[in-house]
């Protein structure tokens, strides 16, 4: 049987260094160190909550669900973009450094300004764009399990923004639409109910969109939900290239709003 039933709660003293910043009083961020008695089963977020409740009431950060689905608690933990409710203290050394997510402006302590991120999500028109809207009385669309499987992976994004933090392209150009938003566009493009690929293409297939991506692949490596945004972007590049040549070679043919390249069964 598993160790949870037999093990005693053991405590380890961990030094946690947190980047602090309060715009009311600070010109720039600085590190503050806390000694935290961490229990074996704690996640990083538990340690941060301990600091907030027992050592420093002024520490600010976001969190809610504690089960890796609300996407609030992303932080840099020892230099790696991490969902702090999803990373265990037992896997960490005796000294842990926590900073706000990189590639975002710091609003206060571990809280970053995420308005730009939400605008980018919004810019790819992430909603069903049906050819004609069905009424509720007409019932549901038919969608076969294999059609669902095509896009399902790309619906799993929790908007935790770790991928934006890991992306070196984002660091160099904050206008980049970015991994999560492009993966979301791909999700709708692949959905059999959607006919909106062309409407999204203005943003998606622009220089700030897929063509800004140089396929570092870091986004997919840090994604806690295995969405694989890098894959979504590369597939979108192939689809957009196809569209371009279709338009170029067959100008008389109105570019068809077909599906992206994935999907041929045999």
């Amino acid at each position: 049987m598993s160790d949870v039933k037999t093990s005693q709660k053991s405590v380890r003293q961990v030094e946690i260094e947190i980047l602090r910043y309060n715009p009311d009083t600070d010109e720039k961020p600085y590190f503050q160190t806390y000694q935290v008695p961490c229990q074996e089963e704690w996640v990083i977020l538990d340690a941060v909550n301990y600091i907030k409740d027992n050592l420093d009431r002024s520490l600010s950060y976001r969190w809610s669900c504690h089960m890796a689905v609300c996407g609030s608690c992303g932080m840099m933990v020892n230099g790696e973009p991490t969902l702090s409710c999803h990373a265990f203290v037992r896997d960490m050394p005796d000294k842990i450094t926590i900073e706000p997510l990189e590639n975002f402006p710091i609003a206060r302590d571990l809280i970053v300004d995420m308005d730009g991120f939400v605008e980018k999500l919004s810019s790819v028109k992430p909603y069903i764009n049906a050819a004609e809207e069905k009424t509720v009385e007409q019932g549901t669309y038919q969608q076969l399990p294999e059609q669902l499987q095509l896009y399902k992976q790309y619906t799993q994004c929790i908007n935790c923004m770790l991928c934006y933090s890991a992306c070196p392209q984002m660091a160099l150009n904050d206008g980049f639409v970015g991994p999560a938003a492009l993966a979301l566009a791909h999700r709708y493009n692949l959905d059999s109910r959607d006919k909106g690929r062309e409407v999204r293409e203005d943003v998606v297939a622009s220089n700030a969109g897929i063509w800004e991506c140089s396929f570092v692949g870091a986004c997919s490596e840090v994604c806690p939900k295995h969405v694989d945004p890098a894959a979504a972007i590369q597939q979108t590049k192939i689809a957009a290239t196809g569209d371009y040549f279709k338009k170029f070679l067959m100008p008389w043919k109105n570019a068809q709003k077909g599906q992206a390249p994935e999907g041929g069964d045999q």
Partner: peptide
């Protein structure tokens, strides 16, 4: 059922039967 169907139209990825129904 009406509200859940509306969610389907808005793109909710409901799990499906082999025939493609919800």
């Amino acid at each position: 059922p009406k509200e859940l169907t509306q969610m389907e139209h808005w793109g909710c990825p409901w799990s499906r039967t082999k025939e493609g129904k919800v």
